[in-house]
Design a protein around this nucleic acid. Structure first.
Lengths: 212, 212
DNA sequence: ACCTGAACACCGTTCAAGT
DNA sequence: ACCTGAACACCGTTCAAGT
């Protein structure tokens, strides 16, 4: 009996993280093509596996896209968290996180659209759960900032009133969200930089949260 | 030679508006499935034609989706225009159009996402032109309102300064856009009605445009 | 447990015809 | 000018095997 060929071949990913590799490949495709109309088989090809290997990790193509959206939310959360790391004043932190948010969206519009696209919106068996949690984690960064501002009295929000708090969070989120989307879609007919947008954000959000 | 069968058979759409029929069928599918992952062949089936008939009217599937988005913008424009028909005060008109906008978005989230989705964003031969024009027409309703408010002195916008005007329009649009999107995506964790949202809109936009 | 190859029904798009 | 049928390469998904 010959010696067993025990030297490990260069077999990528068989260490067990094909799932991650597939998400990365799909994320790269979304980024390159600025759309998510590519085929699942193409993703498998990129990951160097057979076209049905993905089904060991995802129920279907939609599930993979949901996971990509989840990864997008994780990246967004990290970026937002990093932007407020050394910032103690709540109003400054709010602006910094808003800037991080806008920059993230503008860097990868398609990923951003996927994160807020129909994939996550459709119930279909409660599968988007993990991605939704990632979205909530990103949202939590904003909640923290607003709670801090409310406690320190920088914002005119009642820190102990959940409804008031939620309204403020929703309000701030929707304004940056709207700025990002409108910018992405070219609804802006005049030249504005991200800095200008931040000023808009400041003008709008802080005016809504700071004492008059 | 027998008589020519000149009596018109019940042949739907052969009067020439298959294009419109295809757009309607696709619009119905977007509405029903709340997604645009359906096949072009399915659209053709619904319109009662062979699976390649669409290619007489659209370059490809993407082109059809772009046309659907265009139809969505037309409906949005009509609805916004109707909402401000009898309203003379600019600030009231702004609120009314904002309400119309939110209601439209909430009634058909998938159509709304399609209108602001990757299809229109990708250049690919300058084909989305018509749909973009429809979008601009909807936008024009808002421009009119703001110009009116600027001229009548209700809004703190310089009516003769294009940049100031554009900023105000962009600002108002992005806020409703953001409210609609955030609501669609369930980022709101507290119960709010459209009326509550309109109050938010009022609080934010009017505060930004009215004299302090 | 994870991956592969074969298989199936379906799809987007093209092309040569038909009227 | 507009529509159809046949054709092609490709896709999503399933299944029976392989390790």
């Amino acid at each position: 009996m010959p010696t067993r060929k025990s030297t490990p071949k260069i077999r990528p990913y068989h260490h067990g993280d094909l799932r991650r590799a597939l998400i990365d490949a799909a994320l790269a495709l979304v980024t390159e093509e600025q759309d998510w109309a590519f085929s699942l088989r193409e993703v498998a090809r990129r990951a160097g596996v057979s076209h049905n290997a993905p089904y060991n990790h995802f129920g279907d193509k939609q599930d993979l896209l949901i996971a990509v959206a989840g990864a997008g939310f994780e990246k967004l959360r990290e970026r937002m968290a990093a932007s407020v790391a050394g910032v103690s004043a709540a109003d400054e932190a709010l602006l910094a996180s808003g800037r991080a948010y806008l920059e993230s969206a503008l860097e990868n519009p398609a990923l951003y659209r996927l994160m807020f696209g129909p994939a996550l919106a459709k119930p279909k068996g409660g599968r988007p759960q993990a991605a939704r949690e990632a979205g909530n984690d990103a949202r939590a960064v904003l909640v923290d900032i607003i709670v801090r501002g409310a406690r320190s009295g920088v914002f005119t929000v009642a820190a102990d009133d959940p409804v008031d708090l939620e309204k403020a969070v929703f309000f701030a989120w929707s304004v940056v969200h709207g700025l990002a989307m409108a910018l992405l879609d070219g609804f802006l007919q005049v030249e504005l930089t991200v800095d200008d947008l931040i000023k808009q954000f400041e003008r709008v959000v802080l005016r809504g949260l700071l004492p008059r």
